[in-house]
Amino acid sequence: MAKVMNAADGGDIAIRVKDLHKSFKLPTERAWGLKQAIFNRLKGIKGYKTQKVLRGIDFEVKKGEFLGIVGRNGSGKSTLLKVMSGIYVPQKGEVDIYGTLVPFIELGVGFNPELTGRENVYLNGALLGFSNEEITEMYDEIVNFAELKDFMDQKLKNYSSGMQVRLAFSIAVRARGDILILDEVLAVGDAAFQQKCNDYFASLHGNQTVILVTHSMENITKFCDRAILIENGKIVNEGEPEKVAEAYKALWS
């Protein structure tokens, strides 16, 4: 289980992941629906096979550290993030979180096209665990960062897709959590906005704990203090971003 504790209790540690194991039951014969389930039970078919996705992950993230997680598709990165965010329950192992964790597995979760930009910010904030007062405090910063001041009272369906993703991204980077988790969301929007995103991440150095999953080795070496490489649910390389990026590229050679 992911346990959330006070930031002060952790000393200089923000997250501690201990011997994490996670497997999924994948339906083999279509076990979707009651009929098939009863049928399978009668025939003695289990109806699923177990796939181990995480096989004993251990690592720590220090406060203010920018950690990159890399690995091939299907290596277990996103599952790891979801277990750390408390979305999945692991079979074995523990995640200790010191402080508030704000996960962005995807940008704009729960965004509704029928609501206005403002309403969506409040809804999204509530989903991330912020109170209305906290969101009101962050609101101006979010809108300014997104550069959408004149559009906040319009419905989201009238936004361009670039504007939508800018708003979602701004919530992600302006949400005041102790630990920020990002899954492949770094720079969005047009060239100017991407530059702004890059500048923002560069400015975070040492002030904010960030865990970033990405396939861009450029971003790993540019932003991260440390990186880990995951392969088949295990950490196979860990340390300097440059070294890990090399190991990542070597997976294909």
Partner: peptide, 9 residues
């Protein structure tokens, strides 16, 4: 389901 798959609450 979209919320439950991506957020913890």
């Amino acid at each position: 389901g979209d919320l439950i798959r991506k957020l913890s609450f």
